[in-house]
Amino acid sequence: MAADPTPNPHATAEEVQAAYADPKLANVLYHDWEAGTYDEKWSISYDERCITYATGRFKAAAGDVGPYENAMELGSGTGFFLLNLMQGGVIKKGHVTDLSPGMVEVALRNGRALGLDVDGRVADAEGIPYEDESFDLVVGHAVLHHIPDVPAAMREVRRVLKPGGRFVFAGEPTKVGDKYARGLGRATWWLATNATKFGPLQAWRKPQEELDESSRAAALEAVVDLHTFDPSDLEDVCRSAGLVDVRATTEEFAAALFGWPVRTFEAAVPREKLGFGWAMFAYRTWQRLTWLDERVFAKVLPREVFYNVLVTGRKPG
Rank of each mutant, 00 (worst) to 15 (best):
M1K: 13
A2E: 11
N8P: 00
E14Q: 10
E15I: 06
Y20P: 13
A21G: 15
L25G: 15
A26C: 07
V28E: 12
D32Q: 09
D32I: 14
W42P: 01
S43Q: 10
S45Q: 13
Y46C: 15
Y46F: 15
D47W: 12
E48H: 11
T52R: 13
T52F: 02
R57A: 05
K59E: 15
A61E: 03
D64K: 03
V65K: 05
P67M: 01
A71Y: 06
S76G: 14
G77P: 07
F80W: 09
F81P: 06
L83I: 09
G89M: 09
V90L: 04
G94P: 10
G94Q: 13
M103N: 10
M103F: 15
R109I: 14
R109Q: 15
A113Q: 12
L114F: 06
G115F: 09
L116V: 07
L116K: 12
D117W: 03
D117C: 03
V118R: 10
D119M: 14
V122W: 13
V122G: 12
D124P: 05
A125E: 05
G127E: 13
P129S: 11
Y130F: 15
D136H: 12
L137D: 03
L137C: 10
V143P: 06
H146C: 08
H146R: 04
P148T: 07
D149R: 02
V150K: 05
A152G: 00
E156Q: 11
P163C: 14
G165Q: 04
R166E: 10
A170W: 00
R182V: 00
R182H: 04
L184C: 15
G185D: 04
G185P: 04
A187N: 02
W190E: 00
A192E: 04
T193C: 10
A195D: 02
K197V: 01
K197H: 11
P200D: 14
L201T: 11
W204M: 14
R205S: 15
P207D: 14
Q208T: 06
E210V: 11
S215I: 06
A218V: 00
L226Y: 09
T228E: 14
E235I: 03
E235R: 10
D236R: 14
S240W: 00
A241L: 07
G242T: 05
G242D: 07
L243K: 08
V244A: 15
A248G: 09
E251W: 04
A256W: 01
G259L: 02
W260M: 06
P261H: 08
E266F: 01
E266R: 03
G277A: 03
W278L: 05
A279S: 14
Y283C: 03
L289S: 12
F297S: 15
L301M: 08
R303N: 08
E304V: 06
Y307N: 03
N308W: 03
V309C: 04
V311Y: 00
T312K: 14
G313F: 01
